[in-house]
Write a protein that binds this DNA or RNA. Structure first.
Lengths: 149, 149
DNA sequence: TATTGTTATACTCTATAACTATA
DNA sequence: TATAGTTATAGAGTATAACAATA
């Protein structure tokens, strides 16, 4: 009973907000993917760097945040560590835990990449006028608000 | 000199439109990924099915559309074909080309998955009121407009 | 010669399962 | 016993390079 059925949707290409949202997500991801590739980073590695810009989580917290298994996390951190972008250290409070953080080089690299992401994404957003940009940001933030991820 | 520096951005979590956009993209992708996983589909396979819902492209066109190498496309199509979701057929006009299309089963499956995507994404969008939903859709569409991808 | 697609190869990403060390 | 992390293994996704068939 509850759900008011979508009635007769005529199945155009992008006829709903969720389709527009999915489309926007794919386009955005394509850009992020490209920027990542320019720096030899997968989307996941890009994200790891972004997270580590202002955090120093344990392996488990990082895996949780990314929605990945801890074993997957080990591999990701291994490879990035091998490149000198981040490092591991025993966690102070817990003898089992391992903290992850950017190296000095990794931090510089992460800032460079972040700047490139901004630049690469801006052609998209600047298609809108300043007022619309504010509106869009506001709507997106309200939509994501309290959707902790 | 050139770039008007962002002045004193205090580096909050999401303080710019591009960050909000990237965040929205990651959240959306996480949902799509989850729906895909429920059906044993990667994000890419999910997308392939979505594209094939109303198209019958050649391998090369499909690869182009997804931004992948043709060899990658071969593997993706191989696996989906093995599952009976899609099929290949020689392209009428060109003896070298191969058309790809959904099987009857694949088409049913694709519709089911699409419905699930709508459902899974709607909790996000319905956080906004109806008027805001229309505004957001409009802004996204205008942003993506003429950005063929 | 150029284009379409496949195959071979290699590496990253990912999960599951088994393991070690600490709590 | 339960938790944090690593290692081993296997499969999907991806690109590059070499190839066959057609244009």
């Amino acid at each position: 009973m509850a759900k008011p059925k979508p009635s007769k949707r005529h199945r155009a290409k992008d006829d709903s907000l969720v389709d527009a949202l999915a489309h926007a997500a794919f386009v955005t991801m394509a850009v992020l993917n490209k920027v990542g590739a320019e720096h030899d980073l997968s989307l996941t590695q890009l994200r790891v760097l972004g997270i580590l810009r202002d955090r120093r989580p344990r392996m488990a917290a990082l895996a949780d945040y990314l929605g990945l298994e801890k074993s997957t996390m080990s591999g990701l951190v291994d490879r990035a560590e091998k490149r000198g972008l981040l490092a591991r250290a025993p966690s102070p409070g817990d003898g089992r835990a391992v903290d992850v953080f950017l190296t000095a080089e990794g931090a510089r690299f992460a800032e460079r990449v972040h700047a490139r992401v901004q630049d690469a994404l801006s052609p998209l957003t600047t298609r809108l006028g300043p007022a619309d940009q504010r509106r869009l940001q506001d709507l997106l933030e309200r939509m994501l608000d309290s959707h902790e991820t």
